[in-house]
């Protein structure tokens, strides 16, 4: 699966320049800013071994699992404070400076100003209202990347005691009950809940999270039979393209991600970074 950024070509050129600038700055920034938003790799991230993974997505082959290479994943979502430090170093990602092709008008809507969090955005809360482009630029600036869906799904399937808790009714009910609560209350701080067995916090129950290949989640396994890229958007065909039909909890996250475009922002959508 690969991402398909869907921005106009002008925006892509801008992004390319921006990404180059960001990458160029990354080393310098990492040195200059230190832990303020980059963090020491070992504290900030955790090693996950990967291996054979039974995704809810169809594999496109006769096998029912895919192979996930070892990777490192952030222990917690990126916070407002960390994203503020990033925008200080990267003026092109400040609120009010980003073309709408890269972030819609809701970008950082709860911040008081371009370099000011204000009362509606506490430093320890996960940053939200960031587009996929913005999330990606942040991770790049840190020398990291967004996790892909399989990496995210594998880590998020864990409970405090099990690596794959998806069949547990407790795990499912906990995820579903978070889904059923509207986002009309202030978000808690990151890492307020216990980490899962890998030592990762907040994969469920805090915010939605971007993944690198969110835009590819709609591609059916067999394009001859399921060529419609909108499969999940209506009725039963969506359910049919999910391997584990009873696992609504994960399917709903796929549905959420598939409703997005790369420049979209929502007040309950944040992100975390990964590295190889």
């Amino acid at each position: 699966m690969t991402a398909r950024p869907n921005s106009p070509s002008a925006a892509r050129r801008w992004l390319k320049g921006s990404a180059a600038r960001a990458t160029g700055l990354a080393l310098l920034t990492a040195l200059a800013m230190g832990a303020s938003y980059a963090g020491a790799p070992d504290e900030r991230t955790v090693q996950i071994e990967g291996g054979a993974w039974r995704s809810v997505l169809p594999t496109g082959t006769a096998r029912d699992s895919v192979t996930v290479k070892p990777y490192r994943l952030d222990r917690r979502p990126v916070t407002n404070a960390e994203f503020l430090a990033f925008t200080r170093a990267h003026p092109e990602w400040r609120k009010g400076h980003v073309p709408v092709a890269l972030a819609d008008v809701g970008y950082l809507r709860h911040w008081a100003g371009p370099l000011e969090l204000g009362r509606a955005a506490l430093p320890d809360q996960p940053v939200t209202s960031v587009s996929w482009f913005g999330a990606r630029a942040y991770c790049e600036a840190r020398g990291a990347r967004l996790p892909d869906w399989y990496e995210w799904e594998l880590a998020a399937a864990a409970s405090e005691t099990q690596r794959d808790a998806r069949d547990s009714s407790d795990w499912q009910q906990r995820v579903l009950s978070w889904y059923s609560r509207p986002s009309n209350a202030p978000l808690p701080a990151v890492a307020a809940e216990k980490p899962n067995i890998y030592g990762v916090h907040d994969l469920q129950g805090l915010v939605w999270e971007w993944v690198e290949d969110f835009n590819a989640l709609m591609i059916g396994a067999d394009s001859r039979e399921q060529g419609d890229p909108d499969l999940l958007k209506f009725c039963g065909s969506g359910a049919l393209s999910i391997q584990d039909r009873e696992n609504y909890a994960v399917a709903m996250r796929v549905a959420f991600l598939s409703s997005l475009q790369a420049h979209d922002t929502t007040i309950n959508l944040g992100f975390r970074c990964a590295t190889n």
Binding site: G106, W178, Y179, S180, R181, P182, S183, N184, K233, F234, M252, A255, F256, S258, S259, L260, T266, I267, N268
Partner: peptide, 8 residues
């Protein structure tokens, strides 16, 4: 904006 879910 306060919705948790996408809808159609």
């Amino acid at each position: 904006p306060t919705s948790k879910m996408p809808h159609n």
